[in-house]
């Protein structure tokens, strides 16, 4: 469900960028980073994105999602470890609880890939 909201936010952000461009370029790919320690399902995002961009300036644009695993840092052992989501979050070596999360909380729009449009007769709706 909330993937729909997230997608709305994504589309608005991209639209802002698009409208700030003097020559409306053709957006080809949107790169996202989605951590595994979030409530977002990459598949759900893909699905919502496709549904919500139909017949808009983003129709057919590819959503490239980089899945980032959860990585925590143990202060006692001074090392990173990979908790097993759903099973075990404490340090496998010393059993300290999960204090610092290094990676896995990301929910980010990284960058856009676009190409310039040379054909002046091409009109862009939306």
């Amino acid at each position: 469900m909330h993937e729909i909201d997230m997608t709305k936010a994504l589309i608005l952000t991209v639209k802002d960028w698009y409208e700030s461009q003097p020559e409306k370029p053709k957006i080809e790919k949107i790169h996202l980073t989605v951590g595994q320690f979030t409530c977002v399902e990459p598949l759900g995002l893909q699905f919502a994105f496709e549904a919500q961009t139909r017949n808009t300036f983003l129709a057919g644009v590819e959503l490239v999602i980089k899945d980032v695993p959860l990585i925590a840092f143990c202060h006692s052992c001074q090392q990173e470890y990979k908790p097993e989501i759903g099973l075990q979050y404490s340090c496998p070596d010393c059993k300290s609880p999960m204090n610092d999360i290094r990676y896995g909380r990301e929910l980010k729009i990284d960058r856009l890939e676009y190409s310039a449009i040379n054909n002046q007769h091409l009109s862009i709706s939306n």
Partner: peptide
């Protein structure tokens, strides 16, 4: 020729909610 460019956005998906 098909040339692509990159535009950095670097924005959280929850930015507006935040």
């Amino acid at each position: 020729m098909h040339q692509t460019f990159d535009a950095a956005i670097e924005l959280n998906l929850l930015h507006a909610n935040q």
